[in-house]
Design a protein around this nucleic acid. Structure first.
Lengths: 140, 140
DNA sequence: GTTCGTGCAAATCTTTTGCAGTTTC
DNA sequence: GAAACTGCAAAAGATTTGCACGAAC
């Protein structure tokens, strides 16, 4: 374990440091949606000295290289996705869980105003779980 | 002027105060994309006593009522759109200008994970202006 | 007259930055 | 060994909150 992370770092020309290997290993092994603090807390379990500022730096570098993507901001907090394949998201307004929508395929539209580098598609609503629980009553 | 704003406020059951009328008047008259401070600065020209915190409160209320929409966050700053019709956006990574894409119409997709309330579609890239100016050289 | 909104200042919270010491190549 | 990275603490910056006063119904 960790080997895959080292490969990815080298492929992207990023120096393979302790922090980066641990953070990327976590993301590769647990593909999903995390806030910066989620990632910090998880990796800190294995490496007590880890510092939050370093996690911010590392994640910013990963995002610049396309290793991870910024999904959205929830309560002003960045949410990262280690699944970088083209897919959309559904964000539940009640439980704030984020669902992947892998089968969205309308992104090859001719855009005239400029050269498109990436596309972000996010659906907001109430997920089936919360609908069942009736937690959505009263909200708009 | 201002009459239209008062109507909209009443339709939405919002108390028609000085601040709200001025802010909404500005947004209705100048449909476009603005940061909270943009709006603050513009309305402050006409009403010196305006306070930034009040603008934050007002815009949050407007967004809850659907009078405006949050386009995106640029440098952690909310960008609002007073055009609430269904449309996508193109954000230029170089000049950070936001373009409307009115002709995007793929939003009626069957989502199985929950009940969709709203959809946000944003394209990121380099706009034609910046491509021409060659400002994009060296960036990813 | 009561409720709600506003201005003001301070607090909060995420993210960024400066710096000295340490690690990587 | 030089350049880049890390931990730490402090700074920065957007947004929120508490409160006393003033405006709207």
């Amino acid at each position: 374990m960790g080997n895959r992370a080292i490969e990815v770092l080298k492929e992207n020309g990023i120096k393979t440091t302790h922090n980066r290997i641990l953070i990327l290993s976590f993301l590769l092994k647990n593909v999903g949606h995390y806030s910066t603090k989620d990632i910090y807390n998880n990796v800190k379990k294995k490496y007590m000295n880890l510092n939050l500022a370093s996690v911010y730096n590392t994640l910013t570098i990963f995002a610049e290289k396309g290793i991870i993507k910024l999904v959205t901001k929830i309560n002003n907090m960045a949410i990262w996705d280690s699944n970088t394949s083209a897919h959309a998201h559904f964000v539940c307004r009640v439980c704030q869980k984020i669902y992947d929508l892998q089968d969205i395929s309308y992104l090859d539209i001719d855009i005239k105003v400029g050269k498109v580098q990436s596309i972000k598609v996010t659906y907001f609503g109430i997920c089936n779980n919360c609908l069942k629980r009736g937690k959505a009553s009263g909200s708009n």
